[in-house]
Design a protein around this nucleic acid. Structure first.
Length: 790
DNA sequence: GTTCTAGAAC
DNA sequence: GTTCTAGAAC
């Protein structure tokens, strides 16, 4: 059998026969193993032909193949990935080998199949059908009766877009073998290879046949994109290492490809099966430093703006570094400062030497931390930022420099991870590949760190308390380094398994960190709502910041002891049950405001406060003008609770609403207002909506939003008052089914298929409002106003 | 209430 | 492929 049918090899691991005794044993163990072949290719590349040839061919050498095709898995129609996974799993459990016939062009698309293979202990191979896009498109366009109904003009578009998002399969994804077919000849060989693979045969691991892709793809891109061919050659297949990239050269590599290149060293360590393992590992370690993949550059924290004593700071840096390097190998730390005369650099250098810290793994560096590669020739995949607690740009120093160099994308990416930082913590932010800092310097992550503050002009001043300051500075560096280790680890995957137990115990897993960050985001999100941030940090926010990325629960004094009892109670109040209804924590923001408006008096969202109500600008207005008149009466949660005794309150709220509508009409006479309550509100505490009827707002996003203001779910204030006067209570019967009703224009009642279409309609609909609204005097406009306001 | 995400619809 | 929705999380 031609085991090397894919042609030339670029595999990191040589064919099995040269691997020596241990590898042979392994090969033996694998004998008879099932295979899952994940086909990778756009529509028209011949995946189905391939799969059918292998699975349906008569030449199968006794191996039972099952073709899992997404285009037909749903009773002959297109199905889902989940269905494919299930079918693959079933077949594998029956002892069969499987061909996954779907595009699988993106890494994410393949991941679940690789995972399934790992779970069931079968080899997972990738076979890439890498034919010119032109060929695929013309085949896809001209074919008839395609199983997935992808043909004709639509096909060209789809193939085109798919190819732009393509990630070449990598061994690090978990494939034991990757084979690339660049033409029909290659495909035929591959079909032969798999259809003649007997039940006890196995194929060598590695990457086969990937080398001739470059020129082919250049042609594709010209064909597809017309213009902009910068960097196409690189992005098409030839793997660049960061070291190969020339300064200033535009890097168009997808991020993941970069990451792989960076961590290729570790991948090879994993493959290092031979006797010289240790030596090789050492050599690889050096490579890994050269390409910056294991290197963190960090500035001295807290010593500049925050005026932390340099001598103590240098002790803490050296201690923390020494401690950290002991626990983690294959990691390099570099302390960076701009000035040659930097006192902190010389102190650290001196103390590190005294402690005999390996100078290859930790050293000081004079230079701009945002230009280490281009100006300093030092490649670092991760840099630390001496951030401020709000994680915002500006302020000078390293923070300003990093944000400036990284561009807006850092700000956006940061916002996704955290809203604020407590002293002594850090947060790692993946730097988008569009960031100049990523492209130019090869920086893939920025870790924001906040140290203690000894400067009386800055927040959280420690008033010369160096006991606490030192603890916090130590925590800040530990958190920074652990975050860095997590980044390295998360890309190394299973590497270093033998020592992994100890290491993973020393820092939180990145998954866990992400989860924590998300929780924090939610908490902060809630506080951001209505911009209700009192001048002093709120309890919830303090909590959020404290939690922010504190690695593996370092005993943070602020978390466990220094927070007042009140805080803990506050946080425990995740939901409360009032009169049978459960309100989630997010739903209580209005209640909290109504009970303690004085806390939020500085918020510019609050328009007016009285003993009876608070008037608030809705932070997510569903129209040009949208305010809430919130009752301050405790226990009055929603319309269902309203009784006769509340009539005076309802009337006051109504008047307040009218007053504000009038004010808005003075500014914009074209508006029309409606005042009313939601039958079943989402947020606790009775609140009256005062909303202009343009509904021109980006915050109006879904059917529920629309229907809650334009159906019987919205109860006009005048009606509610009348009803209570007559019956003593308001009808809230309106079941929530109306919220799911079709989308109809509130003026002309025409129906629209979706929100965007509806929005473009209402932007131009000039029909008069429905007569029931006009008759009832429910609408406030500049022409009706003089009547209502008297 | 919003945000996030999977997957249906196009 | 993109757009949009619905459901679940908080």
């Amino acid at each position: 059998m031609d085991l090397d049918a894919g042609g030339s090899t670029s595999a990191p691991a040589p064919p099995s026969e040269s691997l020596g005794a241990s590898a042979e044993t392994k090969e033996e163990e694998r004998g008879g193993k099932q295979v899952m072949v994940v086909l990778v290719g756009p529509p028209g590349s011949g995946k189905s032909t391939f799969a059918e040839a292998v699975a349906g061919g008569s030449a199968t050498a006794g191996r039972h193949w099952v073709r899992v095709c997404q285009d037909t898995i749903g009773n002959g129609k297109a199905g889902t990935k989940v269905q494919c996974l299930k079918a693959a799993s079933d077949a594998l459990k029956e002892g069969k080998s499987v061909l996954i016939d779907r595009c699988n062009l993106e890494r994410e698309q393949r991941a679940d199949f690789v995972k399934l293979g790992a779970t069931l202990h079968v080899d997972v191979h990738a076979v890439t059908l890498d034919l010119p896009a032109k060929v695929c498109i013309s085949r896809a366009v001209s074919r008839k009766g395609h199983e997935g109904n992808l043909q004709g003009g639509k096909a060209a578009l789809v193939v085109n877009r798919m190819l732009q998002k393509k990630d070449a399969p990598l061994l690090t994804e978990g494939f034991s073998r990757i084979m690339s077919c660049n033409d029909d000849g290659d495909i035929n060989k591959a079909v032969d290879l798999y259809s003649t693979l007997g039940p006890s045969d196995s194929l060598p691991s590695g990457v086969f046949g990937q080398k001739s892709k470059g020129p082919v793809q250049v042609g594709i891109m010209k064909f597809l994109k017309k213009a902009d061919s910068t960097g196409v050659e690189e992005s098409s297949g030839h793997k660049l290492t960061l070291g190969e990239r020339k300064p200033g050269q535009q890097n168009t590599l997808p991020k993941q490809e970069n990451v792989e290149a960076m961590f290729s060293c570790t991948m090879e360590v994993e493959k290092g099966l031979n006797d010289k393992k240790k030596n090789e590992e050492h050599a690889k370690q050096t490579d890994c430093y050269d390409d910056g993949s294991c290197t963190l550059a960090f500035p001295s924290i807290s010593t500049a703006d925050f005026q932390f004593d340099l001598d103590r700071a240098s002790d803490i840096i050296v201690d923390t570094v020494a401690n950290f390097l002991q626990k983690h190998d294959s990691i390099r730390l570099v302390l960076v400062d701009l000035s040659k005369k930097s006192r902190i650099l010389s102190l650290v250098k001196e103390k590190a030497a005294k402690k005999s810290i390996d100078s290859r793994r930790f050293f000081t560096f004079v230079g701009d931390i945002t230009q280490l590669h281009t100006k300093g020739g030092l490649q670092c995949s991760v840099i630390a930022n001496a951030a401020n607690w709000r994680l915002k740009p500006g302020g000078g120093g390293v923070n300003a420099a990093v944000y400036n160099a990284a561009g807006d994308s850092l700000q956006h990416a940061t916002k996704k991870c955290a809203d604020a930082l407590r002293p002594g913590t850090s947060v790692a932010v993946p730097l988008p590949s569009i960031s100049p800092l990523h492209q130019r310097e090869g920086v893939t992550h920025v870790i924001h760190v906040l140290g203690p503050n000894m400067n009386p002009m800055r927040p959280d001043y420690l008033n010369n308390d160096y006991t606490r300051g030192s603890k916090l500075l130590h925590e800040a560096y530990s958190s920074l380094f652990e975050n860095f280790a997590s980044i390295v680890r998360s890309h190394m995957g299973k590497v270093n398994n033998e020592s992994g137990t100890e290491k993973s115990a020393s820092g939180g897993t990145s998954l866990k960190d992400t989860k924590i960050k998300r929780e924090d985001n939610h908490v902060s999100e809630r506080m951001k709502k209505y911009k209700l941030l009192p001048p002093i940090m709120t309890v919830n926010q303090q909590h959020a910041c404290t939690k922010a990325n504190t690695p593996n629960g370092l005993d943070n004094a602020m978390t466990s002891s220094a927070v007042p009892n009140q805080t803990k109670q506050g946080n425990n109040k995740k939901s409360s049950v009032v009169a049978g209804k459960t309100w989630g924590s997010w739903a209580q923001a209005l209640y909290e405001l109504a009970m303690n408006p004085e806390k939020y008096k500085n918020s510019d969202s609050i328009l007016e406060t009285s003993d009876e109500f608070v008037v608030l600008k809705d932070l997510y207005p569903k129209a040009k003008r949208h305010v809430l008149v919130i009752s301050r009466m405790d226990g009055l949660d929603s319309l269902a609770d309203v009784k006769k005794e509340h009539l005076p309150l309802l009337r006051s709220m109504h008047s307040a609403g009218v007053k504000w509508a009038q004010k808005f009409l003075e500014e914009d006479a074209d508006l029309v207002f409606r005042l009313g309550y939601h039958s079943v509100p989402s947020m606790r505490q009775l609140h009256l909506h005062v909303i202009s009827q343009d509904f021109n707002s980006a915050s109006l996003k879904n059917k529920k939003h629309w229907n809650s203001f334009t159906t019987s779910f919205f109860r006009d204030s005048v009606d509610v008052i009348e009803e209570i006067e007559q019956h003593g209570s308001a009808t809230t019967s309106s079941d929530e089914k109306v919220l799911a009703m079709e989308l109809r224009c509130h003026r002309c009642r025409s129906a629209h298929p979706n929100i965007p279409k509806l929005k473009s309609h209402i932007a131009n609909c000039k029909s008069p409002f429905p007569s029931h609204l006009l008759q009832k005097n429910s609408l406030l406009s500049s022409s009706t106003m003089h009547m209502d306001s008297t």
